[in-house]
Design a protein around this nucleic acid. Structure first.
Lengths: 187, 187
DNA sequence: AATACTTTTTTACATAGGTTAAAAAATTAC
DNA sequence: GTAATTTTTTAACCTATGTAAAAAAGTATT
């Protein structure tokens, strides 16, 4: 709960009043390993901060699974389009480990944005960062072949390597697990 | 110039003072067909609104060209990460047609965000939309094969079809032009 | 330790899409 | 309207990666 506030203040310093208004809106939400945090077709009502644990954000398409992102400790996550537009999600969010989060409800988030300029600023920077991260992912998907993507994934997620299965890693890269096995065999 | 203001107000209504402060910061910038708007390694100093024309946002990698997006009339564009962090761009922006834009400088943009809560709100919504659009592109790239991507591209950009070459279309989809020709031949 | 379950690798085969080169078609310039 | 240039298509060949099924390795449970 305090970490949520700390990290939001790191995007841009919140005013004292904004911080005071924020705290009572926060709720602790815990999820068991394997538990679905947000289903397909369900509107994502919360912005989450992970205090502990790991989640994956994915969807099914033609019998295959694609993982958009993993989120772990000290990161915010939500189902972006579903949260900001309050529309049904195309994606599924599931806990890969027992996970503890600090969450804020959409209407509270929206209200704080309206009430406090400094909160709005942090929100802007938070979502801008999300846009930049997504752009980076598009570029990576374009210009790297599967072997490079795996290498990059390992570099950027070395702290998560023993927590994420090879099957999930393959789904993140966008290849079959067989292909990932072949890539690993070549080294 | 007035369209820039109109479209920014559509994200979220700006206060009267914000609108008044915004107008004198806007500059008209015109580019000839083929002219580079922002080079690689160059910091993108402006947020642009296209009054007329068409630009592509791309990069080179291993002798291939990848187009991240096309931008045309009544759309904002910038080199996202370069603009928001004022760091060198990895991408190139070039005019595909004679293009007229209304532009605002980063420092003016930043100042208006700080000064006017309502401007900050519009900025948040603008960048949030960019994040959602990028997420959608990631999903498309994952779950659609080249033929589907081409079909989707045509559906979503029918107004641009005769303005974008097949070579550029292929670079947007992430395939070679030869492959695109094959796809077209099959229909 | 033996059984069951899950994860990862291996093999065989099929297909999508890359590369290169050349031809054909369309567009632009003079 | 002919030549020059650019764009698009076609063909031949090759590689990466998909699918399916089986084997192997690893983990958990009693």
């Amino acid at each position: 709960m305090l970490d949520f506030i700390k990290y939001l203040n790191e995007f841009s310093q919140l005013s004292e009043e904004a911080n005071e208004d924020l705290l009572p809106k926060l709720r602790t939400k815990s999820f068991k390993k394997g538990q679905i945090i947000n289903k397909e077709e369900q509107v994502c009502k919360n912005l989450y901060f992970i205090d502990k644990g790991l989640v994956k954000h994915y969807y099914h398409h033609k019998d295959r699974v694609f993982i958009l992102r993993f989120f772990s400790e000290t990161n915010f996550f939500t189902v972006l389009d579903s949260f900001v537009n309050q529309t049904p999600s195309q994606f599924i969010t599931i806990a890969l480990e027992d996970t503890e989060t600090t969450a804020i409800d959409y209407s509270d988030f929206d209200e704080l944005c309206k009430k406090h300029h400094s909160f709005e600023t942090s929100a802007r920077k938070l979502f801008t960062m999300a846009a930049v991260v997504n752009l980076k992912r598009i570029k990576e998907m374009f210009d790297a072949d599967a072997a490079e993507l795996y290498k990059e994934f390992m570099n950027e997620n070395h702290h998560l390597l023993n927590r994420i299965s090879l099957g999930d890693t393959a789904s993140y890269i966008g290849i079959s697990q067989v292909t990932l096995s072949r890539i690993r065999a070549k080294k």
